[in-house]
Simulated assay, not measured.
Amino acid sequence: MTIRVYTVAREGVVTPPFATVTVPRSYTPRPEQMTTVLPPCACPLHRQMAAAR
């Protein structure tokens, strides 16, 4: 499977693919843990706060 990421402007202008990811047919993802804990936020603000700790 191939996934392509495009950007579309408000005017409808489409850019060339920003990223292309190919997932092989034999790929098996590892199972996720059954938990209610959310992953840490990866936004720039919280990354800076985590680095300061």
Rank of each mutant, 00 (worst) to 15 (best):
Arg25Met: 05
Pro39Met: 03
Val5Ser: 11
Tyr6Ile: 05
Ser26Trp: 07
Met49Ser: 09
Thr22Glu: 13
Pro16Glu: 15
Met49Arg: 13
Thr20Pro: 00
Arg53Ile: 07
Thr28Gly: 01
Val21Lys: 06
Pro31Trp: 00
Glu32Ala: 11
Val14Gln: 14
Met34Tyr: 08
Pro17Lys: 04
Thr15Leu: 08
Thr7Ile: 09
Val13Gly: 04
Val13Arg: 10
Ala42Tyr: 06
Phe18Met: 15
Thr2Arg: 13
Thr28Ala: 07
Cys43Pro: 08
Gln33Ile: 00
Met1Tyr: 04
Arg10Asn: 14
Thr20Ala: 06
Pro16Ser: 14
Met49Ala: 14
Arg25Thr: 14
Met1Thr: 13
Ala19Val: 03
Pro39Tyr: 04
Glu11Trp: 01
Cys41Glu: 09
Cys41Trp: 07
Val8Asp: 10
Pro40Lys: 04
Val5Asp: 01
Gln33Thr: 04
Pro39Ser: 08
Arg30Pro: 07
Tyr6Glu: 06
Cys43Leu: 05
Tyr6Ala: 03
Thr28Ile: 08
Ala50Cys: 00
Ile3Cys: 07
Ala19Lys: 11
Pro39Val: 03
Cys43Ala: 06
Thr7Cys: 10
Val8His: 04
Val5Lys: 11
Thr36Leu: 10
Met1Pro: 13
Thr35His: 01
Val21Leu: 14
Val21Trp: 05
Pro44Asp: 02
Phe18Arg: 15
Thr36Gln: 13
Val5His: 09
Val5Arg: 09
Ala42Arg: 13
Val23Leu: 15
Arg4Phe: 08
Thr35Arg: 00
Pro17Gly: 03
Val5Cys: 09
Arg30Glu: 13
Val5Asn: 10
Thr22Tyr: 06
Met49Lys: 12
Gly12Cys: 09
Phe18Asp: 12
Val5Gly: 02
Leu45His: 08
Ala50Ser: 11
Tyr6Val: 03
Ala50Phe: 11
Cys41Tyr: 08
Thr7Asp: 14
Thr35Leu: 00
Leu38Glu: 12
Thr20Gly: 00
Ala51Trp: 00
Arg25Gln: 08
Ala52Met: 13
Cys43Glu: 11
Pro16Gly: 15
Tyr27Leu: 11
Val14Ala: 07
Val14Trp: 05
Val23Gly: 04
Pro16Asp: 15
Val14Leu: 12
Gly12Val: 06
Leu45Gln: 10
Ala51Gln: 11
Pro44Ala: 01
Gln33Met: 07
Thr15Tyr: 06
Val14Asn: 02
Val13Met: 05
Thr35Ile: 02
Arg30Gly: 02
Gly12Pro: 08
Ala51Leu: 07
Pro31Thr: 11
Val21Glu: 08
Gly12Tyr: 03
Thr36Tyr: 05
Ala9Phe: 05
Ile3Leu: 14
Thr22Met: 02
Glu11Tyr: 01
Tyr6Trp: 15
Arg53Tyr: 10
Thr15Cys: 10
Met1Cys: 10
Glu11Cys: 08
Pro40Ala: 05
Thr22Asn: 13
Thr22Pro: 00
Thr28Arg: 12
His46Lys: 09
Thr20Lys: 10
Tyr27Glu: 05
Glu11Gln: 11
Arg4Tyr: 07
Pro16Ile: 09
Arg10Glu: 15
His46Pro: 01
Ile3Asn: 02
Pro17Thr: 06
Val37Tyr: 11
Thr28Lys: 10
Thr22Gly: 10
